[in-house]
Amino acid sequence: MSEVIVVTSGKGGVGKTTTAANIGTGLAMLGKKVAVVDTDIGLRNLDVVMGLENRIVYNLVDVIYGNCRLKQALIRDKRYNNLYLLPSAQTKDKTAVTPEQMVKLTEEMSNYFEYIILDCPAGIEQGFKNAIAGADRAIVVTTPEVSAIRDADRIIGLLEANDIAQIELIINRIRPDMIQKGDMMSVDDVIEILAVHLLGIIPDDQQIVIATNQGVPLSGRNSPAEQGYINICRRITGEEVPFLSFDTKKGIFRKMTELFRN
């Protein structure tokens, strides 16, 4: 059985591509046969996040136009031989592909992979419509900011209107210290506002920047964000995993020093 999951957000810069790369890698670590597909035609990014930019020969548009076979365009990951990337085209634009062609492509890929992760472009235009066309399931990525949540709400509405049965939320870049001070919306606040099932939470973490710089997602740094992604992957496979808790309660010594500092 195969599942096609689209990673989307509406707003740009909330961590869709990072999430797609980490979920792809995480599922591969769990032994699943996985393909990650960059559907952002004209703005290719997933390849650099995964560190596979030097291996691209053919791309998604080549496969759809019949310039090559699917297997020729798929790039095997450096570290996991059950993880593949289908890169996007850099020279074409979103109108090069139709939703029907994307459905055909994901159906063909379903024969070879257990999970197909589609990295969706920002926005709600053609690129979004293409990306969600073949998806069974959607992961909406947001951050605890008003702009990202507003766009996530809009995207959830559009996904529902397009009959995507399973819609789940990832809240990215959580800052427990700011939530504790009351200067950031909490996970519960966001869930209450969006009224959607929570798939996972990712704390704001410098290690993600470092891993992306190096092109090695989930590189075993044992950082909070990596743990968050691993938990998400286990939940995707149907396992029940408790959510990360941010126990920022301070010891008596810290409390005392803060009191004096204030």
Binding site: V146, K181, G182
Partner: peptide, 26 residues
């Protein structure tokens, strides 16, 4: 508690401002 009283009670924290603004606009 001292710093809570100084910051917390005098003005609403930005997190709850964000939540209420979002609720209205959505």
């Amino acid at each position: 508690m001292l710093f809570m009283a100084r910051n917390g009670l005098t003005k609403r924290r930005s997190g709850s401002v964000a939540r209420n603004r979002l609720k209205t606009v959505l």
